[in-house]
Simulated assay, not measured.
Amino acid sequence: MQPLFLHPRDLDIAAPHLFWAAPPDDALLESLATLGQTTPALVVETGGRPILAAGSRRAAALRERRGTALCALAVSLDGPPDADEADDRDAAITPAVRLGLFYLASNLGRTVTDAMAVAAGRYFAAESSSIDDALRLAGPYLFAPDDRRGRLLAQWLALPPTLDALLASGHVPLGSAGLLAALPPETLDALLPLLSSVRWSRGSLSGALTWLGEAARLAGEPAGVLLARSGATELLGRGLSPNDLTAGVLAALRRLRYPALTTLEARFTALSRELARGSRVKVKPSQGFESDAVTLEITVKSPDELAKAAADIAAMAFSPVLPKLLTVAHDDGPGSEPDAGPGAGPDGGPTA
């Protein structure tokens, strides 16, 4: 096979099948300057302008080196020369799909991130009759046979492409594909400001969506309407740290699902701080506020600290705050019991 020498500016380095194309990094530039081009690009000869099948970073780098040609090898879009060896389905592979496969094959051994897998999946899905067909062709180049990301990728490709940027930026993980795919389009649209502002784990997003969905079912209102009332989106412009923003958004959505329980928690927190002020004692409520009892916890490192804690506990027995704390679940009268509902765990969160 004879190499071809082409002017790199004669080639399209941003064609759709070059779905991982990126500017050349310093390591590649240094290698080209020191050793020259050591790996040929792949091109398809068309009788006119050649099609770059692989090697976009090399071509982009050589564009900046005046007078330097790109060394390339020609490949064919006609498929295997022996048709008897080709699977019937593979014999019908379109030129666009074959270009994508050439590109994947040239990148074998490269670490494929979730965002890269989605970019490849989008290309093949657009050029195939179904997502299953697309992954049958591209999957072996992207994942090991037992890699569960193949299943997650299929779920993600059912989502709007606008979400791909959130995956690439690290705001939403590939593992959340099934959760997001189960949402009605209007709910997904309403959630976009939160999805693009908080860095979600699959667990935190699962909890948030569970609370929002259950609150909407109990209220008989659209999830987007409840979300607008929750106060979660109002936190986005306050300049909070990433951790504080995540905690605030989750608290707002949990409060939406469990208003009575979160009100009790807030009241208990305020009273317990007042009761234990100046001491090492931690005051905790009964599970789910199911009984009029509290648990006192102390950590001591010396006899003196233990004596001090004992004195503090003795003083708490005479505090006017203690009776309020013990009956905190009764302060609102009838209907103030902690929230319950489908999926509720003992702490007011979703069950596993």
Results as ranks from 00 to 15, higher is better:
30 E>I: 06
178 G>Q: 13
185 P>W: 12
312 D>F: 07
174 L>W: 01
319 S>E: 04
201 S>E: 14
257 R>Q: 15
89 R>Y: 08
199 R>N: 08
278 G>P: 06
83 A>D: 03
178 G>C: 01
38 T>H: 11
283 V>Y: 13
326 L>F: 11
266 A>L: 12
332 D>F: 08
276 A>M: 12
4 L>I: 07
300 V>Q: 06
72 A>E: 14
121 G>N: 07
140 P>A: 03
180 L>V: 00
223 A>W: 02
270 A>R: 15
250 L>N: 10
338 P>M: 06
191 L>Q: 03
64 E>R: 14
173 P>K: 09
307 A>Q: 11
68 T>S: 12
84 D>V: 09
135 L>C: 03
335 G>C: 07
245 L>P: 09
243 N>T: 15
307 A>P: 01
202 R>T: 12
312 D>R: 06
126 A>G: 14
189 D>S: 09
156 W>M: 05
161 P>K: 03
57 R>H: 06
344 A>E: 14
245 L>D: 13
226 L>C: 11
286 S>F: 02
21 A>T: 01
298 I>S: 04
56 S>N: 15
195 L>R: 04
62 L>H: 06
300 V>A: 15
223 A>M: 13
122 R>T: 01
201 S>R: 15
39 T>I: 13
111 T>M: 10
249 V>T: 03
190 A>W: 09
338 P>E: 02
256 L>H: 05
234 E>A: 13
34 T>C: 02
351 T>I: 15
208 A>V: 04
204 S>R: 02
126 A>C: 00
237 G>R: 08
109 G>P: 10
7 H>D: 13
284 K>I: 11
207 G>H: 03
68 T>M: 10
39 T>G: 01
210 T>Q: 13
214 E>N: 10
164 D>G: 09
227 L>S: 12
158 A>W: 02
89 R>L: 12
173 P>I: 04
39 T>C: 05
